[in-house]
Design a protein around this nucleic acid. Structure first.
Lengths: 113, 113
DNA sequence: TTGACGTATGCCGATATGGGCATATGATGT
DNA sequence: ACATCATATGCCCATATCGGCATACGTCAA
């Protein structure tokens, strides 16, 4: 069944590096498509496609301005992501000396074989 | 060129819901494959495959324990993810009244046409 | 209207994905 | 050596992905 549609949730949307770049750029403010494409070194169609995904998951809002379409950040859907990942915070802070030393032991054991 | 290999980074690894479930379960401690598979209602091969991905991106560590293989969480690679997403925090807190009201205006404008 | 600009879409190709299934591999106990 | 339990792999399928390219669409100016 292949991967869940990229368009389904924020986790999938930000799995793509170029889309992360777009979002990062948009923190500076709204931008037209061509602008983004150029700045990120991608073709205009590619930019449009990525923006479409971002729009569909609600990470971005569009606004028509003359012949241009200004895309703006809508980060609200990133909050659940942040919270989910944050649920692991204590695991990368606390108690990884244990894991680390365990991994070290493992490596040593392997070398000694 | 299709999507960047799922195996390439944590962002891709956690884009898959089942893998997120696995990681969440592992917060409770190490677990053998079959255990995880059963608890999450997936086949053993599927569990093994997801675990492989997680292992390859370094989100999980394995340890042989008799005939079993105990998988344990290694959340360190989630930290960069958390930080990247955290970079948008002010955008989902501050200044979204603006966006909200803007969106409202938009909808109204469309209805009135 | 016509043309120019900005953007979205459709189609194609190459590749990656996740799931099912059968089976190979590994370790254990007899 | 052998049967058994626990996992990992390989193969196949259906589908989704991203990229390139051509082109349709929408808006504005002359």
């Amino acid at each position: 069944m292949a991967r869940a549609a990229t368009t389904s949730d924020a986790f999938n949307a930000i799995a793509e590096p170029q889309r992360r770049d777009i979002l990062a750029l948009l923190r500076a403010g709204e931008r037209p498509v061509t602008d983004l494409a150029q700045e990120l070194g991608m073709s205009q169609p590619q930019a449009s496609k990525h923006l479409r995904v971002l729009r569909e998951v609600g990470l971005v809002q569009v606004r028509g301005a003359g012949r241009q379409r200004l895309y703006g950040l809508d980060a609200r859907r990133l909050r659940p992501v942040h919270e989910w990942v944050g649920g692991f915070e204590r695991f990368w802070n606390e108690s990884f000396d244990r894991l680390d030393s365990y991994v070290q032991d493992l490596k040593q054991a392997q070398q000694e074989e």
